[in-house]
Design a protein around this nucleic acid. Structure first.
Lengths: 145, 145
DNA sequence: TTGCATGCATTAGAGCTCTAACATATCTTC
DNA sequence: GAAGATATGTTAGAGCTCTAATGCATGCAA
């Protein structure tokens, strides 16, 4: 005896869309050989060179240990470099390497292609509606916690 | 030079909503001491006793190895039991134990509470709109692949 | 100056997720 | 009956994600 059928659960529709999004982006990112979280980090790094890992984690919406994992993999592949901060000796400044920038640009092309295809499925009004409704979802759910 | 600002990317709003959903559900599931994927499996198992792991994976929208991982953890905790199928000797029938049913019911209460709070943030018309728009997202993205 | 608060980085541990590959069993077709 | 198709289950390996705990550095306040 379940109190709520799956189809009525808004959450299941959100999850479904997110899954499809992740699958599409992963496919689009394959030529660049980066994952979705790696692409997100590279993209923000290109806009904020020298940012700290913690700040980058906040921008990407993940926890610092998670970002640490992602950065570790990016560093091993030579896409980023991390150097000690001038004053705050505890802070590491993270920057794209040349390779990293190239990977970011290749990845960005794929990601934007997906976003454009997604946006093209809606009218301007529908896009605004969708974004507004999703914003309220996040708001309510964050408050719930 | 990025070709598309984050705020215009529908995907980032979907991701944000999904993250908030996951966080809220995880918090609501804490009393039952199960994760969101575990709850999903338990819920479907309560409706389809004896289902195969592969079929369960399809219902939950994950791959068979993923479901295998989830079921392994549930089995170690004694929430489910798996017995060989009568005819198809390669298939394992999965069922809730008594403990599993209790955990499912406790978890369901929390999950439904979140879903109700989420649904309450919208009018009936808005809910339909949101679900419709999300459905088109998934459709377009699946086709993209 | 000493202590505390803040913030960054990291490790440990648990769990989810995927792709790729392989083994097994059943069913269909020739 | 034998071969291939279909479906299930599993292992291996890589990667992401979280919470909790720890260490270190900086800056502020008593």
């Amino acid at each position: 005896m379940t109190s709520m059928p799956p189809g009525e659960r808004i959450g299941s529709h959100v999850k479904r869309a997110e899954q499809a999004l992740l699958a599409a982006k992963n496919a689009a990112l394959k030529p660049a050989a980066v994952t979705v979280p790696q692409y997100a980090a590279l993209l923000w790094l290109s806009e904020k060179p020298g940012i700290s890992a913690a700040a980058l984690a906040r921008l990407c919406g993940v926890t610092p240990p998670t970002m640490n994992t992602v950065l570790k993999n990016l560093q091993e592949r030579g896409l980023i470099e991390r150097t000690p901060h001038e004053w705050h000796r505890n802070v590491l400044e993270t920057r794209l390497t040349e390779e990293g920038r190239a990977a970011m640009e290749l990845a960005d092309a794929g990601a934007v292609r997906v976003e454009r295809a997604l946006a093209a499925a809606f009218s301007a009004q529908e896009r605004e509606q969708l974004i507004g409704l999703l914003g309220r979802c996040a708001e309510v759910l964050d408050a719930q916690r």
